[in-house]
């Protein structure tokens, strides 16, 4: 579904991605773990054309998308819940969700809204509250819900567990699995929370300094001593 080859990206003189090769197959949950500043968020954003790749290629469902403008990429069936959540602060929960569906077929709107509000009943209670006044966890739910409103085939999630209470982390991960299993949405998940992410994912990649250093099935990476010492100590 997603084929990334030799992908490079830079911020001015900083090389953030130094040749990434990675695949996500339809129906999979794939996770990407790595230390702070490794380039995980940059990778997710570069897939969407922000920043634009300085080298290499990205194909989505066989189609070359590396040079497409961001809004066109997102109209192909990709949605992202980005780092920092980026909920629209001065719009209500409902307006945020409507914006998620802005390029979707309006015929699906009612059903999709219903589905998101069922997944996150909390959002239904807060429907008319402004995004900026939600708690961190609620914002996280809203960011994921908003991404789902476009009926993506590929969902990109950047650290959905960040700053959440353990119970909520569990709940969010269960939701991700549900979306994947029941609705066949392919998920590419960036996480600091390596233990949970690797248990959830079919496969995982480890990123260090803009490069992929390890990859394999989630269970294999969980057992890998290098991964254990670098990302799972104390977890």
């Amino acid at each position: 579904m997603l084929e990334v080859r030799g992908l490079q990206a830079r911020y001015g003189a900083i090389e953030a991605l130094r040749g990434i090769d990675l695949d996500v197959k339809a129906g999979e949950i794939v996770t990407l773990i790595g230390a702070n500043g490794a380039g995980k968020s940059t990778l997710l954003m570069t897939l969407c054309g922000q920043p634009r790749a300085s080298g290499g290629s990205v194909r989505f469902e066989g189609r070359e998308i590396t040079r497409l403008p961001t809004f066109e990429i997102m109209r192909l069936g990709i949605a992202q819940s980005p780092e920092g959540r980026r909920v629209f602060p001065r719009m209500t929960v409902l307006e945020n969700l409507k914006l998620g569906a802005i390029v979707a077929d309006p015929a699906h709107y009612a059903a999709d809204l219903d589905r998101v509000l069922t997944l996150f009943p909390r959002l239904a209670e807060r429907r008319d509250q402004r995004g900026g006044t939600l708690s961190g966890g609620e914002q996280q739910m809203l960011a994921i819900g908003r991404a789902l409103m476009s009926r993506p085939r590929l969902l990109l999630l950047d650290e959905p567990s960040l700053g959440l209470a353990p119970l909520l982390v569990k709940q969010i991960f269960a939701t991700v699995r549900e979306i994947n299993e029941n609705e066949g949405v392919t998920v590419f998940l960036v996480e600091q929370n390596a233990f949970h992410a690797l248990r959830l994912a079919h496969r995982g990649y480890v990123m260090v300094n803009g490069r992929i250093t390890l990859s394999g099935p989630g269970s294999e990476l969980l057992a890998n001593p290098e991964v254990r010492s670098a990302y799972l100590e104390g977890a």
């Binding site: 961001t70 980005p82 629209f88």
Partner: peptide
């Protein structure tokens, strides 16, 4: 809504498929 989205966070607006 698209217009207000661009006002509040242009990059996020693009990520939702809005032609900024």
């Amino acid at each position: 809504r698209a217009q207000r989205a661009c006002e509040q966070d242009m990059k996020m607006a693009m990520l939702l498929g809005i032609d900024v």
